[in-house]
Design a protein around this nucleic acid. Structure first.
Length: 490
RNA sequence: CGGGGCGUAGCGUAGUCCGGUAUCGCGCCUGGUUUGGGACCAGGAGGUCGUCAGUUCAAAUCUGGCCGCCCCGACCA
């Protein structure tokens, strides 16, 4: 198979698609709109899961699991929620197949479900139906539960990782005694997501709140982190919702407060998905392939021996295994690729394609000099280092790479963030230099809608702690107190 | 659901207009030489040409139906 991927600049979508496949992250599946996540891609997802899961637990959350199927009646209890998801639900109507007279397998019409089951597109309804039985008193609160699960949304158009029919995610669903506490939770989880994106994925994000148009179906307020991909398009990387008492009311979840009065429970939900994998690819990778931040790389260092004959390999291996051990003692994950079936040049290209942060090559020359060749994936720079204290040097190098990726991503975002003061300017920037456009907006849905229809750009978010600045709306000319983030998005 | 493109070996493709039993590259297998940036030589294996039907002495090629995929749009995390 040819491992060449198309250029990033020529066709960003094609580049992304090919890269995901060639780097062995995922592939299209036999089921329309679904994908197969391959072992290498899944290993990265597992790294993400582990880091996130720890952050959730450090903030007091626990994991649980709820059913895949949601009875239609549950699903329809919260009006705006149904409305938001109705168009993209997979529905189970029967529970048995049979063999037809002609030998083909058909649905047994006699095995029709009395009530259809919805394959969860998200679990608010089934979870709140369950919480009803868990909550009687303020003493039962808060409930801080997270679920790792798969969900199905029957999207019309799909794209590997970014929008597949089935995807993996985590969804947190919390229940609180007060609005204030629920809002604090919503904001806390947004912080967790932002920290994960920036510290682990090396992907800078803007924290903000969604406009009513873009709000989650059933939420009072949707907080989000928005990131910018290398082609200037925005990607929503995570959301945290303050659900108010909407779901508690829909499922009649009341509790007795300290005064002995009945009140509806306050709710939040928050989630990130395998979409983050897409974000990771689009944030850092280049025409040679994937570029992984060290903290999420399935292995951070690959060692490639360069040798002639078994004897030389044995000598090299002796040195390598010692090095490997030292690095592993520092918590660095190392792969020693001593396969004789591929040549060094092939391996170099392969590990670049797969985004391994650091590559160490060692041959006869190095054995003599007590050196190794160290190549970093982010800058593609190579240098020769002394073997002495290599583990410490690599440890620092990995930190540097992690930081460099983040700084590069910030620089890219800054270079593609513009102010627009008139609608003409706004449209010009949008086409000429895609990116984030900071512009004044009159705060109405109508204006946002019009701009979306005319330019395909949406308000990504209203940044938290936004700077106050008097101005006029680029579209309507009405007064505005702050700029918001506009962009075309994935 | 609208617009465009496509379906030929594991992958990428030529051939389709003008019908005559499938081309090339990568990969794979065997042997040898190699190994500091995707090796080279020699030999070899591998194909219901998406599918069903029709036309014909003869269909990858012509006709019709169906299926699937990709891209762009509406929808969306």
């Amino acid at each position: 198979m040819s491992k060449e991927i198309p250029s990033r600049d020529k066709n960003y979508s094609e580049w992304y698609n090919e890269l995901v496949i060639k780097a062995d992250l995922a592939e299209h599946s036999a089921v329309k709109g679904c994908m197969v996540i391959k072992p290498y891609g899944y290993a990265i997802w597992e790294k993400m899961q582990q880091a996130l899961d720890k952050m959730f637990k450090d903030t007091g959350h626990v994991n649980a699991y709820f059913p895949l199927f949601i009875p239609k009646s549950f699903f329809s209890k919260e009006a705006s929620h149904v409305e938001g998801f109705a168009k993209e639900c997979a529905v189970v109507t029967h529970y048995r197949l049979k063999t037809a007279p002609d030998g083909s397998i058909v649905v047994d019409e006699t095995a029709k479900l009395e009530e259809e089951l919805i394959v969860r597109p998200t679990s608010e309804t089934i979870i709140w139906n369950t919480y009803k039985g868990w909550i009687q008193s303020y003493r039962d609160l808060p409930i801080l539960v997270n679920q790792w699960a798969n969900v199905v949304r029957w999207e019309m158009r799909t794209r590997l990782f970014l929008r597949t029919t089935e995807f993996l995610w985590q969804e947190g669903h919390t229940a609180h005694a007060t609005a204030q506490e629920a809002i604090a939770e919503t904001e806390q989880m947004l912080e967790v997501y932002a920290e994960f994106a920036e510290k682990w994925m090396a992907m800078p994000v803007i924290k903000g709140i969604k406009t009513p148009n873009e709000r989650f179906a059933g939420a009072l307020e949707t907080y989000c982190i928005e990131s910018m991909m290398q082609d200037g398009k925005a990607l929503q990387a995570g959301t945290s919702h303050f659900l108010g008492q909407n779901f508690a009311k829909a499922f009649d979840v009341k509790f007795a407060n300290k005064e002995g009065k009945q009140d509806f429970v306050w709710a939040t939900s928050w989630g990130v998905s395998t979409r983050l994998m897409g974000a990771l690819v689009m944030s850092h990778s280049d025409d040679k392939g994937l570029v992984l931040p060290p903290k999420l790389a399935p292995f951070q260092v690959v060692i490639v021996p360069i040798y002639k004959g078994d004897e030389q390999l044995a000598q090299i291996s002796e040195v390598v295994l010692k090095m490997k051990k030292e690095m592993e003692a520092k918590g660095i994950s190392v792969k020693y690729d001593n396969r004789d079936t591929q040549r060094p040049g092939w391996k170099f290209a392969e590990y670049e394609l797969k985004g391994v942060p650091v590559r160490i090559a060692i041959g006869a020359r190095d054995l003599e000099n007590g050196t190794v060749e160290v190549a970093r994936r982010d800058t593609l720079e190579k240098e020769t280092l002394q073997q002495a204290d290599l583990a410490t040097k690599i440890e620092h190098l990995l930190e540097q790479i992690q930081d460099n990726l983040y700084q590069k991503a910030i620089a890219m975002r800054e270079a593609k963030t513009f102010n627009a003061d008139t609608y003409a300017e706004f449209k010009e920037i949008l086409d000429a230099t895609p990116g984030f456009i900071m512009a004044h907006w009159d705060g109405t849905s109508e204006t946002e809608q019009k701009i979306k229809e005319e330019t395909k750009a949406t308000i990504r978010c209203i940044p938290l702690n936004n700077k106050e600045e008097a101005g006029v709306c680029i579209y309507s000319g009405k007064p505005s107190a702050q700029r918001v983030v506009f962009a075309r998005s994935y």
